[in-house]
């Protein structure tokens, strides 16, 4: 699996769900962390950001600090976590040099696209 890592956010996104990465300009685009954690995350207006266009439509804004990692194997969630239907958009967990990160599929969070397998 190839992942886009948002290092400061502790999040990673499968490359397969992203169609393009653009300079963030549209204030109406939802902030990924807000979709994941609810409207509780800090987001300053001058924070550099990018807009991820997603497979199947939809878009999310993310912090601009990002990099790709190749050939990573996600850690499968145990059943107690995986089978919880409230875990919308959570694909798994991955161990990266910078630490454990959640793998999420933003297309599920914005209600577009097919879940990543």
């Amino acid at each position: 699996m190839r992942l886009l890592v948002l290092a400061g956010a502790g999040l990673a996104i499968p490359d397969a769900v992203i169609t393009s990465i653009e300079l963030g300009a549209d204030q109406a685009t939802p902030w990924l962390a807000d979709l994941l954690y609810g409207q509780t995350t800090a987001r300053t207006t001058d924070q550099p950001r990018r807009t991820l266009r997603l497979q199947g439509g939809g878009a999310v804004d993310v912090p601009a600090t990002m990099h790709f990692v190749e050939h990573v194997t996600p850690l499968a969630l145990s059943d107690l976590l995986r089978l919880d239907p409230r875990l919308v958009g959570i694909v798994g967990v991955v161990e990266l040099p910078e630490g454990l990160s959640l793998i999420c599929d933003p297309s599920e969070l914005v209600g577009h696209g097919e879940p990543v397998q």
């Binding site: 502790g10 994941l36 954690y37 609810g38 850690l75 969630l77 145990s78 107690l80 976590l81 919880d84 409230r86 875990l87 919308v88 959570i90 967990v93 161990e95 630490g99 454990l100 990160s101 959640l102």
Partner: peptide, 17 residues
């Protein structure tokens, strides 16, 4: 190290490797 997973129950807040 562990990672918080959003929307889980309070007694099961996340996961570790």
């Amino acid at each position: 190290e562990w990672v918080r997973i959003p929307n889980t129950r309070p007694l099961l807040p996340g996961a570790l490797a």
